[in-house]
């Protein structure tokens, strides 16, 4: 297999700016099929902005974003829509529709995809399956998002992200705001789903335990570009002040020891 076919996402020469503030400049990044890529970086280095740019919520000033071989900035609308259906996104706080129950939230993408020819009973049962696979008790399906705890909201968001059987899963700080036990359980859940469903996962995170537990490779964002990409071992060998500080700091050592 050639290198290009292995890369499910290819970002080239990306430049993002808001007014005079340049967030990314000449950023290159590849995500390989079937891997879990963790994206780390200090606050304000544009990790979430990168995620939003790849999924098309931000338009970059320059550069190209190719997902599944489709140039997402220049391809016709229909082709973009086809690619968009092959990814699921979990936003930081779940971003559940607050006027719908959990069940209806998970059903929403299935209902929108009318060409699948599913009837109401199928949609309801597929949604229940997603909710169960995301590790929520069946009783949670009828609840409103406001009635859920932070961890349950993330699981419900994950169930919605998985609704259309995506190939790529985007996660924005999936374990932020969870207690260590909940975070570890969520890491395991992501790892299990990723293996079972053969997902490619793009994960923005600050959680060193997550990086250690589920990520195959890590990309470090600093100085407006991807400073280094590689496995945890490779990261430990990188000679850059911020990277060293990050991966050799006291918290990193603790996480590595535990891992």
């Amino acid at each position: 297999m050639s290198g290009a076919a292995q890369n499910i996402i290819e970002v080239r020469g990306l430049r993002t700016q808001f007014g005079a503030q340049v967030v990314h400049d000449g950023l290159d990044l590849d995500v390989r099929r079937g891997e879990v890529l963790g994206v780390v970086g200090g606050s304000g280095t544009g990790k979430s902005v990168l995620l939003r740019t790849i999924i098309g919520l931000n338009r970059p000033a320059a550069g190209s974003v190719r997902v599944l071989g489709v140039d997402m900035l220049r391809a016709p609308r229909a082709e973009r829509a086809r690619v968009e259906r092959s990814w699921g996104v979990l936003f930081q706080n779940g971003a559940l529709f607050s006027s719908l129950t959990v069940q209806q939230n998970v059903e929403a993408p299935l209902r929108e995809a009318r060409d699948l020819g599913l009837d109401d009973a199928d949609i309801a049962e597929l949604a229940r399956l997603r909710i169960a696979m995301a590790g929520l008790a069946p009783g949670a399906a009828a609840k409103m998002p406001a009635e859920l705890s932070g961890g349950m909201r993330k699981r419900a968001g994950l169930a919605r992200a998985l609704a259309l059987d995506p190939q790529i899963l985007f996660l924005d700080e999936p374990t932020a705001g969870l207690d260590p036990i909940g975070a570890a359980a969520f890491d395991q859940l992501i790892g299990r789903l990723q293996r079972a469903l053969g997902l490619t996962v793009f994960m923005v995170t600050h959680d060193l335990d997550s990086l250690n537990a589920v990520c195959d490779r890590i990309a470090v964002l600093a100085e407006r570009r991807v400073l280094a990409v590689g496995t945890m071992e490779e990261m430990l060998a990188v000679d850059h002040p911020w990277v060293r500080e990050y991966f050799h700091g006291p918290r990193a050592r603790a996480a590595l020891r535990a891992g």
Partner: peptide, 15 residues
């Protein structure tokens, strides 16, 4: 196989 087993295990009961 893993996928089929994971889904079969997670099959929800009818509400």
């Amino acid at each position: 196989r893993e996928l089929l087993e994971a889904v079969t295990a997670a099959m929800p009961e009818a509400p």
